[in-house]
Amino acid sequence: MSLAIDLASWALLVAGGFFCIVGGIGLIRMPDFYTRMHAASVTDTLGAGFMLAGMMLQAGLTLVTVKLALIGVLLFFTSPTATHALARAAMTRGVQPLLADGEGAPSKR
């Protein structure tokens, strides 16, 4: 039983590390600022989520698990807020998004 839990948590940790690195690669490869934010949100949600889930399996039913869950809830509430503030600030400062269909940013406000 404990072997199964170890295997599951190992898989979750590996998946978390994989998604964190994917987010880092995306942050370097993406062509403009707005597309980079999408890559960063992979790290923020999938990477963090899988890592915390893996650690929760290791900790079992203790206060440590509760704290890990709190960290997860915190990340899931704050990271979209920060991302949205960032996108909005960039848009009001006039950073033009690269668009596939060629038209510029729609009229402000």
Partner: peptide
């Protein structure tokens, strides 16, 4: 742009939280 750097700093913060727990 400065926003790229702020975005990178924010992501490093998330990673730092994970590194601290690990």
């Amino acid at each position: 742009t400065v926003f790229d750097r702020v975005q990178a700093a924010n992501t490093i913060g998330t990673l730092a939280v994970l590194i601290l727990s690990v």
